[in-house]
């Protein structure tokens, strides 16, 4: 599979380069861009492509990328559901949220559902402690969760898919 940015992404890429004094500094935003462009993960081909664009080695790109939890090196479900289980959320019942989701989706933390819709993972404090328990679905935060809301959210997502 050949990997190449769309014209719109190329425009974004060119703009990004103007914001930093060197190309490497654009690596994090370019990785975000690539993940959004190429199906929600960063494949070895995408790494090669980014390395060429930024005059880096593939190792450089991989070295940086592998440090961060938000870049995926394998295909993920359409909806990545990340449940915060850090202290404030745990105090408000995060582990019950986890149990409920595992039951509802029929998968365990760290797994992806067979239909490719949901990937379930545990996350660390996401800055929503005052509206705990909470979870992140891709770029959306869902806060003050309870069993009823969880059911509604999953149904809504299924409809959207």
């Amino acid at each position: 599979m050949t990997v190449e940015f769309s014209d719109k992404a190329k425009e974004k890429f060119d703009h990004l380069l103007t914001r930093y004094p060197n190309k490497r500094a654009a690596l994090l935003p370019v990785l975000h861009l690539a993940q959004a462009e190429f199906g929600g993960w960063v494949s070895p081909e995408a790494i090669k492509y980014i390395a060429e664009l930024l005059d880096l080695t593939e190792l450089d790109v991989h070295d940086t990328m592998s440090f961060y939890t938000m870049y995926y090196n394998q295909p993920m479900g359409k909806f990545v559901v990340e449940v915060c289980h850090t202290l404030s959320c745990e105090l408000m019942g995060a582990s019950t949220v986890v149990d409920h989701l595992e039951n509802k989706l029929g998968i365990k933390m760290g797994e992806t559902s067979d239909d490719g819709l949901f990937s379930l993972r545990k996350g660390e404090c996401l800055g929503s402690c005052g509206t705990a328990p909470m979870m992140r679905v891709n770029f959306d935060y869902y806060e003050n969760l309870n069993a009823d809301k969880l059911d509604k959210i999953i149904d809504l997502l299924r409809e959207k898919a």
Binding site: G93, E143, L145, A147, L156
Partner: peptide
């Protein structure tokens, strides 16, 4: 699961 008094009741993506 605990629900504080000022909890957001509806399902909203923020």
């Amino acid at each position: 699961i605990k629900t504080p008094k000022n909890a957001i009741a509806e399902v909203v993506a923020t």
